[in-house]
Design a protein around this nucleic acid. Structure first.
Lengths: 147, 147
DNA sequence: TTAAATTTAATTGTTTACAATTAAAAATGA
DNA sequence: TCATTTTTAATTGTAAACAATTAAATTTAA
C-alpha cells in the first residue's frame, strides 16, 4: 500500500475522530440540556450572554465562529422560548442586540450544574491529562483559524 | 466567582473547542472535496467503501456512529451522483448493500491527494505532536462511546 | 411451528451549518 | 456633499444530524 493510500484509511484520519468526538460530546449534553429545554448550540449562546449580556449578533458569531445564517434562526428560537430579546440597536441600526430576559438570566443557576455532569463522562481521564488535552484542542482551533 | 460559575465560562469548556475544531476542519476539506463534488460526510462514506466495498448501511453506520436517519438520504445523494448503488441484499432482505460504481471506484485516485492537502493546514504542528494528539482524540472517542 | 422480540432501513419532523444573495445602515473618500 | 464601499442581519436553498416512529424481515423462544 502506498503512503497516499494509507493516509486515506479511516483509522488514519485525524479529522474523523474529531468529528466523532464533537458529536458524541454534544450527545452527552443532550440529556442535561433537555431539562433546560435548549440544544447545545443554544446553550453556547446562553453561556456567552451570561458572561456578557447585550452583545450584537456578529459579536456572538465571532466567539462561536458562526454566521447570521445559523444564528438568526437559532436566536429566534431562543426568543420564542422567552429566554432572550432581540433588540435593534439605537446607536447602529444595522445591529441587533441580544438581551437576556428574566427567564434567561434565571436559567444560569440551573445551568451551573451541567459542566460537572459532563466532566463525569470523562472521569476516567486524569484531570491533568484533560487540561492538557483541552489546551491542545484550543491550539488546533487557533491553527485552523489562521486566514 | 464560584467554581461552578467558572466552569460555565466559554473559555473553560472542553467541548466548545472540540466543536469548533471539528467544524473548522470540515471547512478545510470543503475546497478539495468540491473538486470531487462531494461533502465531508459523503467522503467518509466513500473512504469506508474504498476500504471494503459492499457494506450494509448499518455497518457503515457503526463505523461512523451515524444512523439510517442520516445515512439513508446521504446515500441516496451519492447514488444520484452515480458514485454508489444501493442493492437490497439477497441473503437478508432487511439489509441494503452499498456498492461502488465504476465512477465511485475511480474517484479514489483523486481522493488520495486530499489527506496531504489537509495536513498542509497543520504544517505548523510537529508530526509527533499531531500523532500524539490524534491518539488522544481517539481515546476520547472510546471513552465517550462507552455505554 | 408460531408468537414475540429483535434487527434493519426508511420516514417524519426539528434543529443546526453554511454558501450565496439581499437590503438597509453606516463609514469612507473623492 | 454624495457616490462608493463596508458592515450587519436576514433570507434562501442544500445538506447534515438525530429523535421518534414505522414497516418489513429475521431471529428467538415458548
Amino acid at each position: 500500500m502506498t503512503k497516499e493510500q494509507d493516509l486515506l484509511l479511516l483509522e488514519n484520519q485525524i479529522c474523523f475522530p474529531l468529528y466523532a468526538a464533537s458529536r458524541m460530546i454534544i450527545q452527552a449534553y443532550r440529556e442535561p440540556l433537555e431539562e433546560l429545554g435548549i440544544t447545545y448550540p443554544q446553550y453556547l449562546v446562553m453561556m456567552i450572554l451570561w458572561e456578557k449580556d447585550g452583545l450584537a449578533v456578529n459579536e456572538i458569531g465571532k466567539r462561536l465562529f458562526l454566521d447570521s445564517g445559523t444564528l438568526t434562526p437559532l436566536l429566534k428560537r431562543l426568543e420564542s422560548h422567552n429566554l432572550i430579546k432581540r433588540v435593534r440597536s439605537e446607536d447602529d441600526e444595522r445591529k441587533v442586540e441580544i438581551q437576556l430576559t428574566f427567564q434567561g438570566k434565571s436559567m444560569k443557576s440551573k445551568a451551573e450544574k451541567i459542566p460537572a455532569k459532563i466532566l463525569e463522562c470523562l472521569n476516567s481521564w486524569e484531570p491533568e491529562t484533560l487540561v492538557n488535552f483541552k489546551s491542545e484542542v484550543n491550539k488546533l482551533v487557533k491553527t485552523l483559524n489562521q486566514p
